[in-house]
Amino acid sequence: MTTTAPAPDFEVRQHDSLGLRVQHLLHANPVLGPLAVLLLAIVAFSIVNVRFFSAANLSLVLAQVTVIAVLALGQTLIILTAGIDLSAGAIAVFSSVLMASFCTKVGLPGVLALLLGLACGTAMGALNGVLVTRLKLPPFIVTLGTLTIFFSLNAVVSQSETVRGSDMPRIMSWTGNTIPIGSFRLTYGSIIMLLLFAFFFYALRSTAWGKHVYATGDDAEAARLAGIQTNRVLFSVYTVAGLLYAVGGWILIGRLASASPNVGTEYNLDSITAVVLGGTSLFGGRGSVLGTLIGALIVGVFRNGLQLAGVEVVWQGFAIGLLVLIAVSLDQWIRKVKT
């Protein structure tokens, strides 16, 4: 004789089934959550203040998030391998100061100064990679130490003085120039940022290197047993991230029309925030650069929208911090999905 399960148990299973479907959907498409948050934020802030959706304000939002987005792109590569980089902002600012110093103090041509600055940023990232892969030090400790070192060297090289854009070759501040598209103004820095995201979107999805990055972050030991040279992957990730941070430093010069050693203290946290809000797991192996771009836009939209709504700065930070906690909690829930 067969028995029928009680109705309450059936209702529970139906409820669990819906939750599992959502869990699986977000696990397979981590960009959907951040995209929904971004769209809702844009709609909400447009209702609160009609100026938010104006072309001039949207141009400002994109320009403001460009540097953070580039830093977050490098941060994404590292977090995908289950690491973290607290020196991102320090490398970017130090690279911008070095570029300016090569021009104004050493007297190098603008293009050469730019290339040397990018090389220095790459070398700083490579140093992080060597310490992580050769000495087997935790990424948190390594980058916490280099954060202090690079900011200290930054103060020594710059002597705490800001170099004006007018004192440097035009190529140094070129990234701040704009292209008018109707009432919308797009900076060259933003174009560079979008091209970088497109390149790494392809690299992570369609190249062996990208697959190795995900495999290393998902399970480094399993990846090593499968024949992947995980140390080489980690070293490449930190080195490439250093180059991206240096590019962010170049864009920063254009954004500020100067090279200042006194900026960037919040860039490390902002870059990690953008990555986390974009759905990349802090435990590695899951996420995408597209999500990071959306995460950077979420940060920019919330700060701009709250400012237009008249919210005090302290509460703007509170809102961003709350978003981060929600994003991390959601990531923990998604990672429990059973395949």
Rank of each mutant, 00 (worst) to 15 (best):
L144W: 09
F94V: 01
L118I: 05
D219I: 00
E221A: 12
G278D: 13
G291V: 10
C120K: 00
A44Q: 02
G117L: 10
Q75Y: 10
I79R: 09
E161Y: 09
D331S: 03
G227Y: 12
P180A: 13
L20K: 13
V237M: 05
C120I: 13
W250P: 01
I192K: 01
I294K: 08
F53L: 15
L26Q: 03
V22W: 15
G110E: 03
K136G: 00
V247I: 15
D218T: 06
I141L: 15
L80E: 06
L108G: 03
L108H: 08
A56G: 09
G165N: 04
V65M: 15
A55C: 06
A90G: 03
A113W: 03
W333L: 09
G145L: 08
A296S: 15
L71C: 12
I294P: 01
D9A: 14
S59C: 12
W333K: 12
P109Q: 07
G125M: 04
S271K: 10
V142F: 10
R224D: 07
S236F: 01
F199Q: 01
T265L: 14
V106A: 14
T162Y: 05
D219S: 14
R164Y: 08
T66M: 08
F10P: 00
L58R: 06
G248V: 04
I179H: 07
R335Y: 03
G310K: 08
N57L: 13
A309L: 07
V22R: 07
V213W: 10
L290E: 08
R335D: 04
S158N: 05
M193D: 04
F283I: 03
L137A: 15
A113E: 02
D167K: 09
G285R: 13
G295R: 04
N304G: 02
T4N: 07
L18H: 14
L127A: 15
R224Q: 12
V328N: 04
